[in-house]
Design a protein around this nucleic acid. Sequence first.
DNA 1: TTGAAAGCGCTAACAC
DNA 2: GTGTTAGCGCTTTCAA
Lengths: 341, 341
Amino acid sequence: MKVTIKDVAKKSGVSIATVSLVLHGNPRISSETRKRVLKAVEELDYQPSMLARGLVMRQTGNIGFVLTEDHFLRTEPFYTRIFLGTEFGARDSNHFVLLATIPTDFSESDFLPRFITQKNVDGLIIAGKVPDAFLEKVARYHLPTVFVDFYPAEGEHSAILMDNIRGGMLATEHLIQLGHRDIAFLAGDMAHPSIRERYLGYHSALQQHGISPNPELEIIDEKKTGKESGYHAVCTLLNKGVKFSALFACNDAMAIGAMECLKKQGFKIPEQISVVGFDDIESDAFQDPPLTTVSVPKYDMGIEAIKLVREMIEQNLKKNKKIIVPVELIVRKSTAAFAES
Amino acid sequence: MKVTIKDVAKKSGVSIATVSLVLHGNPRISSETRKRVLKAVEELDYQPSMLARGLVMRQTGNIGFVLTEDHFLRTEPFYTRIFLGTEFGARDSNHFVLLATIPTDFSESDFLPRFITQKNVDGLIIAGKVPDAFLEKVARYHLPTVFVDFYPAEGEHSAILMDNIRGGMLATEHLIQLGHRDIAFLAGDMAHPSIRERYLGYHSALQQHGISPNPELEIIDEKKTGKESGYHAVCTLLNKGVKFSALFACNDAMAIGAMECLKKQGFKIPEQISVVGFDDIESDAFQDPPLTTVSVPKYDMGIEAIKLVREMIEQNLKKNKKIIVPVELIVRKSTAAFAES
DNA sequence: TTGAAAGCGCTAACAC
DNA sequence: GTGTTAGCGCTTTCAA
């Protein structure tokens, strides 16, 4: 049988109330008894029952982590990393993180994750873009919620976001400092806030350095943001015949696709064309050449997310706090000083 | 405030015991009262507290899912899919699945996932190969455990495994039926049971069809099992100068790497060389040509795993049941009838 | 500084 | 058929 608070009480010759107080660091307890109790706890390897505690405290000790199915199954472990961060962060507060996916096309008629309907979580972390229908449905449960890498179009919320604008600037400035002037920008789906922000950063860096943006160099109408889109975007660019010596892709997948196309067309990277991506995905370092990119602290975003929900749960007040985590330029071998050709 | 069993009892004019009995489908209750109670449950949207129930039943309602960090972060969502399966399977029994990763090089001094030490799970699913040190440590908790895609070297266990041998046979027979005789086999790390089994299948298919295996055609000493290894393995094969018209790689990653090398060397796939992989990963269909492969029912493995732990939890007996899930040949465009060149 | 006791929401044995 | 009641393991007043 599991060892309970009673066992500890008996062993240390006090009441269960005292044990409980000791365990909660109540200062009214003499250090004498405290020591005795702690010793018993230790010797019995006593683990308080979360169930019993939860019942009294009206807390489940769980935090729900929700993302769409395709985000979870994405080849790049982006959200997976964020999840890992929450898992780690949850250790401090002794919470458990329950992961659930929802259909990518979640609609009115779909069910919410059980931990929401059954009120088996104290708070919620929602990672990545989720459908409005989901947002509406989940709102009815009034759970403390933190969004990660996504901010709903309506209302005020708590969220952990990354500094996309600054990232776009960093990437672009890096190229400018290398002497590049004709810097192309590759993007898909501008409806996505992150991508739009990166574009903004690109733009503002150009302007700050007195370079007037050339719309011809902006390929922003790809449907998707994968490798293929990057490949295709470069084709488009090349077909236009505009000259460019550097290229900033809105994410690494596109950057990699772009490099592939460029190499196939006989361009030397970085000698003839410099390439910068965004995200710092695993395979970047294994590219030929290794990709210069903007790194996103996924793990930290998870940790921050947990901290924030916890604050919200404890203080029980709507915080609507936005945390923007910094990004960082990682210079590898895909960028080099501009050389007249 | 949350609605409790008391509210339901009051609303339907019965005792809480009756409500509980109704909820558990006890036949002693008149269909009259049953209906009244159910109606109240419905109207109040009553959700039993897992906490309270768990406290009484001495069950947490949670099942732990453990895998190593790098398996979780793998580019291919293999274990991710299995996890999704468990998540789905858990709905029936109203369990929650707690996911935790352990360091890939877990050692004596590392901590077990909290849900184990805190006894916050009723059972365990361990996916993929995990270090012995972990196994030893976790064994002390005597939790009903099911292994998925891994079977510990020592002792008897419950496990969900896939039919690797049959998969190897299916792949090889497919090639034989297409008229191929000189079929190469590409593998890395033969220490991995799955790979060894696939190799066994390959071998036995050849023999069953009266083809004597040619050791020259077996490249089984790659260090890893990724794309690069596949690429490299084909180089080795080509350098040897042995002739072959088809190739079975121990997994899709290697198959894809192999195709890349082959194409680069000017070989036409499948006209000159047929290629079969194993796993049926996402990107197979997007290869050029789309890869013929052996499909593994990852999702189903998760579902089966949950079923099995549940059985073990309920019946409370060591089952040591092994379930081998069937695999399936997926014929795409990377294989064609043998043609004399 | 400590203990007794109520009660969190539920199940199940037992009584009626 | 249905209700009463004793806990499950814990926290937290309140009293001593």
